[in-house]
Design a protein around this nucleic acid. Sequence first.
DNA 1: ACTCTTTATGCAACTTGTTGCACAACACGT
DNA 2: ACGTGTTGTGCAACAAGTTGCATAAAGAGT
Lengths: 196, 196
Amino acid sequence: MSLPHAILTALLEKPSSGLELTRRFDKSIGYFWSATHQQIYRELGRLEEAGAIRALPRPDQPTRGQKKEYEVLPAGRDELAAWVGRIEDPKPIRDALLLRLRAAGVVGTQGLEAEVRRHLELHRAQLAEYRAIEERDFGDGRGSEGDRLRHLVLRAGIDLENFWLGWLEAARAELADMGTGAGMAADVRTGPEPAP
Amino acid sequence: MSLPHAILTALLEKPSSGLELTRRFDKSIGYFWSATHQQIYRELGRLEEAGAIRALPRPDQPTRGQKKEYEVLPAGRDELAAWVGRIEDPKPIRDALLLRLRAAGVVGTQGLEAEVRRHLELHRAQLAEYRAIEERDFGDGRGSEGDRLRHLVLRAGIDLENFWLGWLEAARAELADMGTGAGMAADVRTGPEPAP
DNA sequence: ACTCTTTATGCAACTTGTTGCACAACACGT
DNA sequence: ACGTGTTGTGCAACAAGTTGCATAAAGAGT
């Protein structure tokens, strides 16, 4: 139930149309809460319906193909403010690569090391991107309260990427070690075949 | 598309019924890929349909209320082995707390520090749980290839919790600092009220 | 015999996220 | 005037995950 709140936040930072929101998500909020333009349009409709936001009045009638800007109404702002301090448990991680490592324990590590190396590269690139943003937006001393909070969020992204780099490197080393040892991958296939 | 693979992995580790799988998910695989019993039953049906697994033959007819054990067929094992090395990009994180920090930048930090402290406690508890498992299952020297891989996955969990502890502590400090400074939370509410 | 709890499987309805496509307005080159 | 690309909104269908409930068997207590 967080997408509507993400949208409210973005709209408060700057009133926008659906497509503008989509673009801003792609290079900012989307780093930790991604959304497609479809989701965004749908949610904008619901938020308007619920009276949390409204479309800025426009002289024209047709809605198709016409830019439609939204702004947050007091009810929306209040809901967002309440959500910020609400009790809500963190959700456990959901990571397919960890699952794949576990699976490799029973069916062999064929192809996994290459995949781990690829992920290492991707995370390195992501980290570089975050660092560039940090340099650009928070290079000098601290700014407003909002700036400090946004910097904090970015630090989470940076620290997370650093965690991944460290762990993936360890995984890569471990897999390489296994690969050069006795050929286990083939041995693993020793489960009982089901009777016909 | 990872749940079926999680189930295949679990079934290869040990053939089980739906409910047994659910329980095992709760205390092992579920740490990084959680699933409800509903999801699991549904997926078991699909996997059986697809010929990846099969129910162990039982003398009785009624299915309702009767335990039904599944085992993996060769097709399922092959699919899992192929998936382990498949190219699949990591998904960006999705964390509501980060979103809430960002939102706090525009609507004020009311109640956030308490929530951050609560999360700190939860992550401390999770870390302790992981460490206990590590002690219990991997306390001595390294075991089989499967053990080493499972240990690696557990390390990811531990490192992640450590990341959260570090970051949440920094966030807590920052929020505390803001709280004692000028009362900003009220000031923030300065957005333009929409014309009626 | 009876209720109550636990174990076990499953349907139905809903929410959230993804994918593919349709369609309107407008700018721009030719 | 006419295609072509870009910007912009949106429907429809699907896939994945969540929530609530129904149902059945088996054991335990009274």
